[in-house]
């Protein structure tokens, strides 16, 4: 691989991958913590233009799951829950604690306002289909398929 291309790839936080009926997310992070933070941002970017969200509200989130992959699905689905119930969308995410079974995190963002925010694609859920977290070339990489 050419050096320029690899440098570009290093900086990449997430990418949307095509799936006939649904949508896949490929997420990267230098650490598992960063991987989860980037996953939150990737999800918000599917729903709206993240840059237009202000950091007005904070949500504290604590989740448990049987393993790291299930924890990633639980994290994304909890963010969707917050959106459904409080119309809250996170712009920035900070992982406070992460073990393979437990996640404590903080999301900063605001209440979705259809007059100010862009409505992109609605997401029903993050699924376990083809779910994967692995270390590749020194970085953490995750793949999640979203049901739209």
């Amino acid at each position: 691989m050419k050096p320029a291309a690899s440098r570009r790839k290093r900086k990449e936080k997430y990418r949307q991958i095509a799936h006939t009926a649904d949508l896949g997310l490929r997420i990267w992070g230098d650490s598992r913590e960063e991987l989860f933070e980037n996953a939150g941002a990737a999800l918000t970017a599917v729903l709206t233009d993240r840059r237009r969200l202000r950091r007005q509200k904070t949500a504290e989130i604590l989740l448990v799951a049987p393993d790291l992959e299930a924890l990633l699905v639980a994290w994304l689905n909890y963010l969707l829950y917050l959106y459904d119930v409080d119309a809250f969308l996170g712009r920035e995410f900070k992982v406070l604690e992460l073990t393979p079974q437990r996640l404590a995190a903080r999301a900063r963002g605001e209440t979705y306002d259809p007059d100010r925010h862009v409505s992109r694609t609605a997401v029903k859920a993050a699924t376990y289909h083809h779910l994967e977290i692995a270390k590749r070339n020194g970085r953490w990489q995750a793949t999640v398929i979203l049901d739209l």
């Binding site: 095509a18 799936h19 006939t20 009926a21 649904d22 949508l23």
Partner: peptide, 9 residues
């Protein structure tokens, strides 16, 4: 109908 094209496409 069933989708033929991904949403991206």
């Amino acid at each position: 109908a069933g989708r033929e094209m991904s949403r991206h496409a």
